[in-house]
Design a protein around this nucleic acid. Structure first.
Lengths: 343, 343
DNA sequence: TGCGAAATGAGGAGCGTACCTCAGAAAAGC
DNA sequence: GCTTTTCTGAGGTACGCTCCTCATTTCGCA
């Protein structure tokens, strides 16, 4: 019992192959009655289109571009690596991905990068949300090129979809962990902010404050430190703040610059004595989780993001459905105990 | 600039298409020198085999069978649903999956089910670990049919791979959460065990005890309750145990039967007053997380398991590589705050 | 009833690869 | 040098589907 083919449909429906093809590809010139007969035959046979063969015949290939900021944080490095690796495997599926870098925090550069893309069927974009960028997305959408926002959303734009986590929920999760992991009730909490990817960090902050207030009303949240996502900035500022506030029980690092954080805690002899919750699994946070300097890491799987983006773009390009569960990026909580194996 | 094809390779290498084909498919009768020339041409052109076209020409299709226990827990229902849904989408990729049910805890039934499979290219198996089953796996492997163990591993068998979580680590993670979420230091902990899927639950228990002892030496772990993964058994036994031990601070439910647990806690007025960590996201645990009866759920994404199994089997069937990161099933920690949207 | 328009059939070429056969060329052994 | 073996080339068919053209049938309507 072989899989039925289009020829089987034709026989079953008592029509010609050409008519079956017209129905399958929604070409005009078929009576409604005939369309029904064909569809019934498909139903009866349980035929499913062989997309591989269809794409082959269609000569379809997918050229997609990732437009990323030129930031050099561990997270961005990991994301870039994941995209390259996913693109390597996607090559087998006639998908060619290209990474284009635009200066971080420079909307003009981002817009220029977007405008400079040619011969591209889909675009994945990670950039701060600004009116210029929003307009550039609109132009792409108008030209029929699907755009997905990566990691940091572009709401109110014509973007097709957002691939990343709900950062408000991530902030709330962090608050819950900080509140419950802290060694004392009514803890004093210090927030280490970054600055880049403005929107996602802002949302995390919002969610964090909201849940702290609601679930741990006795806690004190100190004015936050601006670490600019840079270890060299984080280290001295954090050391200073901790010296000024020896009563701090917990730290929430919502941006990058973890090496600086770990270094500051270590040199003050506070590693393992203060509850620390940070974002993103990187070599630094992994090591810190393992040695107990960091208690919990909230992360999004960059490999999943990269693969999901490619799937979403492909589906958008040829209008096929996708499995929503598979494209849901999880807000992962990592403790030392459930750290996935490295590599 | 189109993608190069086999014909381009032939031109570039200055040989015929037939020779290229011989090289590509490792057919005999080509001189080493010629092989090298072809490979260099491939390198130079950056050619990648179009697997879609190749599979079409090969007439390859993948027929896989899932052999599952006939257990009716929420988790099994969810897993079965996920497999059906993944199989539906996989149909587009010339993959036909079939679910075969064998009586739970009946090695003979499992072996019979495995032996009864015919015309199958790969098998996914979820069953308790017994010598008979191990032998049956060995026979399949000998016949060249790859087998993956699902959810509960079959170590020391000829299984090709295990798709599921590290249950030892999951137990450790649970211990960490119980210890840190408990409202008092040195808490008294009650473990609600199940019985089915013996191996995974045993491993969780081992990991749990180990970490409790190491990280929370002051805690008291009471003798565990056998709930048989059945709400109707869990409810009365748990109620009884809690009445006998009013000092219990925390509960670790490592098996199924969550509705019974929630019911017992509710009727004793203890919902939200005892720290509860449970396994698997089901409608019952989701609701309990949302209303605060359960504090944390440790789960494995059934959708991921289903899709990963299909990918792993396909890769095993035609000996292609796979992305290890993508096949790593995560030990997910879910709090109310990072619960993925339902559906 | 006949006419034009709409619907359908028949057939072919092609997508990139696999796999087959047969003839001819090059290398090896004597 | 010759024969025998080993390599290589040329060409065809197939996979399941798309997309095209042109001839033929069917239908609606005046």
């Amino acid at each position: 019992m072989q899989r039925p083919t289009v020829n089987d449909i034709a026989k079953e429906a008592g029509v010609s192959l050409a008519t079956v093809d017209r129905v399958l590809n929604a070409r005009p010139g078929v009576r409604a009655r005939t369309v029904m007969r064909v569809n019934e035959a498909i139903e009866r046979l349980g035929w499913v289109r062989d997309v591989a063969a269809a794409n082959l015949a269609r000569r379809r290939s997918y050229r997609v571009a990732f437009v990323l900021p030129d930031s050099r944080t561990s997270f961005m490095r990991a994301l870039r690596g994941a995209i390259e690796s996913a693109a390597g495997l996607a090559a087998f599926d006639r998908t060619a991905a290209r990474i284009v870098t635009a200066a971080a925090f420079d909307p003009t550069a981002t817009v220029r990068a977007l405008a400079g893309l040619d011969g591209v069927d889909g675009v994945a974009l990670m950039a701060p949300e600004t009116p210029q960028v929003r307009d550039a997305i609109g132009r792409l959408a108008l030209a029929g090129t699907p755009v997905v926002a990566l990691v940091s959303d572009q709401p109110n734009s014509a973007r097709n979809r957002f691939v990343g986590i709900n950062n408000l929920a991530a902030g709330r999760t962090a608050a819950q962990l900080v509140g419950r992991f802290a060694r004392r009730p009514d803890p004093t909490v210090l927030v280490v902010a970054g600055s880049m990817m403005a929107r996602d960090q802002m949302e995390r902050r919002l969610g964090f404050d909201e849940t702290m207030l609601r679930c741990f009303p006795g806690a004190t949240v100190l004015p936050s430190i601006e670490g600019r996502d840079d270890s060299d900035v984080v280290a001295p500022r954090l050391a200073e703040a901790l010296a000024a506030h020896p009563e701090v029980d917990a730290l929430y690092a919502l941006g990058a610059g973890h090496r600086g954080l770990v270094h500051a805690l270590g040199s003050l002899g506070l590693a393992g004595r203060i509850t620390v919750v940070a974002h993103e699994l990187t070599p630094a946070t992994r090591a810190a989780l393992e040695d107990g300097t960091i208690d919990a890491v909230i992360t999004q799987d960059v490999g999943h993001i990269a693969r999901s983006t490619l799937r979403v773009l492909r589906a958008a390009i040829d209008g096929t459905p996708l499995d929503p569960g598979q494209e849901q990026i999880r807000i992962e909580i990592l403790l030392r105990e459930n750290l996935p194996p490295a590599g």
